[in-house]
Simulated assay, not measured.
Amino acid sequence: MLKTGQAAPTFVLPDADMEEVDLSRYVGKHHLVLFFYPKDGTPQCTLEATDFSDHEEEFQRLGCMIMGISRDDCLRHAEFRDQHGISVRLLSDTEGEVCKQYGVWQVKEVDGVQRHCILRSTFIIDKHGVLRHVLYGVNAKGHAMEVLRAVKDLH
């Protein structure tokens, strides 16, 4: 698991439109919020993604970009985005490499069976590429507003 004060791992992932997003391009320009979520279309994941989308303009006024990451593929992300009016960028980590880098790919017991899944987590990265907030195991409800308050504190 990552810790506050560490350099954020960089990566290149495709978004819902299959355009590559290189995290290193944002260093020196924007604060970033990366939220990792288990699966497109599930109730809690939908709540979280739409909540971040609803507050995206407030984040942008603070010089902050928001990106969601799951292991769903680009086509699934596009369907999810279009169906629910999600405006934040959704990145596809089908191989789970970035999930592993950020320590969110974990074993969880579901119905008595051990299986790997994404632990809902959020990372706030400052303009210098440093992790300012590392939040593992978050609750989707009200989370976007918590993160917005934390981003305001960066100023």
Rank of each mutant, 00 (worst) to 15 (best):
A144R: 05
L91M: 05
Q60C: 07
L148R: 03
L34W: 15
I124E: 06
V147N: 05
H143D: 10
D111T: 12
C45W: 00
R81C: 04
Q106V: 08
V110Q: 13
E146V: 15
G41F: 11
R120A: 10
K152S: 10
F11T: 08
G5A: 04
F59G: 04
M67D: 12
M67S: 04
L32V: 12
D73P: 07
D126Q: 01
Q6I: 13
G5C: 08
C45P: 13
T42G: 03
E20S: 07
G112V: 01
A7R: 14
H155G: 15
R61N: 02
A8K: 15
R81Q: 15
G96C: 14
M18P: 00
G85L: 07
G28K: 09
V151H: 07
K127D: 01
A78K: 14
G129C: 02
V98S: 02
S70H: 02
T50D: 00
L148M: 08
H55R: 13
D82Q: 11
E19L: 03
K3P: 05
G28C: 00
I69P: 07
T50N: 03
E95G: 14
A78M: 13
S53L: 01
H30V: 09
K3W: 00
Q106Y: 07
E97P: 05
R115Q: 15
M67A: 07
N139I: 14
T46G: 12
D111Y: 05
A78R: 12
K100C: 10
T10P: 03
F80K: 03
M65G: 02
T10N: 11
S53K: 04
T4D: 14
G129K: 06
Y37H: 11
I118K: 02
K141F: 15
F11R: 13
N139A: 14
V21I: 10
D54P: 00
P14E: 07
V138W: 08
D93V: 08
V130W: 10
A49F: 14
P14K: 06
Q83P: 14
K39Y: 03
S70A: 04
A7D: 06
D126F: 09
L47E: 06
Q60L: 09
P43H: 04
E57L: 01
R149M: 03
S70L: 07
V98H: 10
K29Y: 11
V33S: 08
I125P: 12
Q114P: 10
E97V: 14
G85D: 15
V113I: 00
I86T: 14
M65Y: 05
D82G: 08
E58L: 05
H116P: 01
V130P: 04
I69T: 01
L62Q: 06
L135R: 03
E58N: 05
A150Y: 00
S53G: 01
I124L: 10
S121P: 10
C45T: 04
